[in-house]
Nucleic acid binder design. Sequence first.
DNA 1: TATTGTTATACTCTATAACTATA
DNA 2: TATAGTTATAGAGTATAACAATA
Lengths: 168, 168
Amino acid sequence: MELSNSLNTKQMERADRRVGRSGAPDRPVLASGLLPQLLGYQLRLAHLAVFGDFSASVGSLGITPGRLGVLLLVEANEGVAQTPLAAAAGLDRSTMVPLLDQLEQSGWLERRRGPDRRTNGLWLTVAGRDFLARAKVRIRAHERRIAARLSAKERAELIRLLGLLRSG
Amino acid sequence: MELSNSLNTKQMERADRRVGRSGAPDRPVLASGLLPQLLGYQLRLAHLAVFGDFSASVGSLGITPGRLGVLLLVEANEGVAQTPLAAAAGLDRSTMVPLLDQLEQSGWLERRRGPDRRTNGLWLTVAGRDFLARAKVRIRAHERRIAARLSAKERAELIRLLGLLRSG
DNA sequence: TATTGTTATACTCTATAACTATA
DNA sequence: TATAGTTATAGAGTATAACAATA
């Protein structure tokens, strides 16, 4: 899953500047050598462009893509404990602690003591639901933007090919 | 370019465990909610899988993908100064300093005083060339592995679609 | 004055190991 | 003993600001 590992604010700005919608990326004057022939490199550039747009769009709501991803996971699994949530997000459970602290401080989720009293169940607050509704508007706009040059068929084909890559 | 920002050893191992070739990824028991429908998320998973394979393959040579990328850029632009190299790699020039220190300590490149005596020209050493030759063998094997499930036509189509995404 | 490489410093994201409370 | 959450700590990768040398 690996929802975190997200760009921070500064990195978002740099990614934006480099690959954003403001026209041509400021291409290095340097030769790129072997790099452009590599599938992984092309994948990285595309990921960077898409993720940069996502970060800029979602970031202005005051959250990073990683934290938003965690919030979406909690939405889909209300009452989930921290350790399985961390596993689903591809993070260590110790890494999840301060991340959840922040989401809790923002008032978007809360920890409730579970039946097994070692665990915390995670629940969205009303504010958290409101926030997610607003975030999803941004997400939809983002999806429209990045897929603007693809037909529905091409979009589906891209997802299929990405899946093949992943299962390789 | 953004060659760095690479996975470290620990992250490589985790990525490997999660998406590697050892069979099924250990899927979270959790519902994934909105996430799987997002193009950016699918892109991220594919990138993670490919980058994990690349890291594992290249990492056993004692270098991170980010540093190897810088080495490839120097190969394609011998004599380049630090600042334009940093720009091409998407890094700050201050970030490039310790990175180049390491490559220099590994004996793969050297700084030579340029005609403008404020600058260092960067040059591969003989050992650096040898190393790159070995690394390229790994890179080719990696490309074969990740594209194993794609026909030549599909591979080309994937690159085309990724390009469309990027120029969106 | 401006630029290059450098240093000092700090921030983000992440992990491991050890602690505590519960089981 | 084992597990869940937490804390303390560390490391990788990155940036900004300020400095010395050179232009």
